[in-house]
Amino acid sequence: MNVFRLLGDISHLLAIIILLLKIWKTRSCAGISGRSQVLFAVVYTARYLDLFTSYISAYNSIMKLVFLAASYGTIYLMFIKFKASYDHNHDTFRIEFLILPCVLLSLLINHEFSPLEILWTFSIYLESVAILPQLFMVSKTGEAESITSHYLFALGSYRALYILNWIYRYYAESHYDVIAIVAGIVQTVLYCDFFYLYITKGIYGQ
């Protein structure tokens, strides 16, 4: 563990908590893409199956459970509890165009052709594009509540911090994972436009 990865995990946890609070407090999921949230739940489910097979640390196991619970909790809030506030009309990104290529790519490019490893690779590829429906929805509605933009800023920062973690691990532990690094860079680049808007003029209330 290093400070970049710890800050990244905290930023990730913060993003998920901000989202849950936003939906719970405002009792509305307006402006939030349910499709992205479904993709995140798929990402964590596919990636954290190793919860039952390999124990890394208490921190690792607890955080995996928190991310899984939070992502399914968000889906429950969006599609069941506050279903009426879900904005179907603006959440239209075709997620099958994201899932299928990631499935194919994970079968073609992976570290090992084993079920758990293919699922891990699929989750890495899918996570890199999982935010697209949300960014698409924000661009379509032309604005985002301030709380939603803070959520996106924290979520985008988490993988940017992970890039610093990978640089650190390369030099300090000569450990690197090309698949995670390339996907992480793609994921962070997708936020660049949003980061620019968030930092220059706070995209909410436009």
Binding site: R5, D9, H12, D50, S54, I56, S57, N60, M63, K64, F67, H111, E112, S114, L116, E117, W120, Y162, N165, H175, Y176, D177, I179, A180
Partner: peptide, 10 residues
């Protein structure tokens, strides 16, 4: 090089 068992990141 990361191997299946060594995915120690979230």
């Amino acid at each position: 090089k990361s191997t299946p068992s060594s995915h120690d990141e979230l």
